[in-house]
Structure formats: C-alpha cells, structure tokens
Amino acid sequence: MAKARTFLWRGGVGAVFTVVLLPMLAVMYLSFFDQEVVSFPPDGYTLRWYVNAWEQREFSRGFVNSLQLAVVATVIGVTLGTAAAYALVRARLPARGFVNTLLMGPLAVPGVVLGTALYVMFVQIDDAIDFQIVATLPGLIAAHVLLTVPWTVRLVAASLAGLHPAAEEAAADLGARPWTVFRRVTLPMMRSGVVAGALFSFIQSFENLELTLLLVGPGRSTLPVAMLNYLEFRVDPTLAAVATVQIVMIGALMLITDRFVNLSRVVS
C-alpha cells in the first residue's frame, strides 16, 4: 500500500516535470534536424541552423538591443520596486492595499492590451506637448520598467516580510542613521529578494514580445521581434537554434544566481 503510494507520487511528480520540460527539450532537439521543413524522424543531424542564426544580422543586432533594454529596465525597475516594497512592508501607508494592487497591475493586464494602451498614451503625449516617445528607446525602456516593477515588488516584499524589524532597530540603537541602517542592515538582509527580483525582471524584459512589438522603433528590433519577423518568411529550425541558445543562457543565469542566493527560499 505504502509502496504503491510512493510509486504513484513519484510517477505524478515525473509526469509534471515531463510536461514542463518536454517542449523545451523538443525545441532543443529540433534545432539539430537536418531539413528545412521539420518532420519526424529527422533526415539527419546538423549544426548549420546555428551557423545560419549566427549569420543573420537581425538576430545579433536584436540580441544586443534586447540585452541593453533588459539591463536598463532591470536596473530602473529593481531600484524603484525595492523602494516600493520597502515602503509597502515597513511604512504604515494609508492606502497600502491599493498601492500594492496598482504595482501588481501590469502582471494582470495582457501584454497586447498594455502595449496598445501605452502606444495610444504616447501618441497623445506626442500630440499634446510635441515630445516624441513612440518608437524611441526611452519609451520602450519605460514600458519594460512596467514589467520589471511587479516582479521586484513581489519578491522583495516576500523576503522582507519574513524579517523582523528588530535588527534595524538594533542598528539605529547602536548609532546608525536611517540611511546607514538601510544600507548596512536592511539591504543585505533582503539581498536574496532583490537578486531574485532582478533575475526575473531581466528574463521578463529580455523575452517580452507583445509589449515590445507595439512600441519598438524601426531598426531597433529586439531579439523576440527579430525572431517573429524571421518567422514571417521562413519556417526552418533556425528559430529553434536561437531559442536553444536563449534557454541555455537563462538556465546558466539562474544556476549562477542560485549559487549566491538561495532562490528557492525567496520564490517559494
């Protein structure tokens, strides 16, 4: 009986992992197929799609654009989000619940809707004060900050909520001024939340398509947009190769991060 239950449990866990991992493994597998139109079984295996991806100027340019965008949006979003999370948890704000919901808002709105709304707003601002935001890099960064803030607020607030304010009081009692208390005690104690927030923010921004698609300027395509453009004309495993590189990169990023902070502690 107990044995059967263990078996069922393990089988269930295995099934869940399979469902989660299978698409990723399938993409990685596909990227080595030696034929333009994917069919099974493959005719053979090749690395030429990786070579092709490398040779596409749109992809390398898109990669650099995405990287810049994600880094800047993450730095801004994590700074603002950390400050917001600190205020939400520690200060007794009058409209705490409302502010929290507002900050989480972007997570609940579909990217296309958010992108359209922002586009319309940017055009309106353009009309009103003759200041161009549509199709500019600052405009796109501002939009991506909307993606990074909720993740940071969520994760930093979670890591802060578990910390007793007594350590901060002890620091103040020993002569530390408020800014010193924050820098020397609060910030290090919520480090894992901040790092996890930064990681998730980066991933969100880096692989965002819907929002970016509506706000990106000509010649500034990010990697996901470049991939979509490619897909309009050709369907070959090149995209699978690009996706594989992304999966490996993000996986590596998570593993490295996990070595410095215990991610599972914050995320769960």
Binding site: H164, A166, A167, E169, A170, A171, D173, P188, M189
Partner: peptide, 13 residues
C-alpha cells in the same frame, strides 16, 4: 543607550 533585544536582533549577514 544600548539595548539587548528579546530575540537578540543580531545582524545575520
């Protein structure tokens, strides 16, 4: 003043 707190409130890092 210097205080010893109930839960000690040491700096864990």
């Amino acid at each position: 003043t210097a205080m010893v707190f109930q839960g000690y409130a040491l700096f864990p890092h």
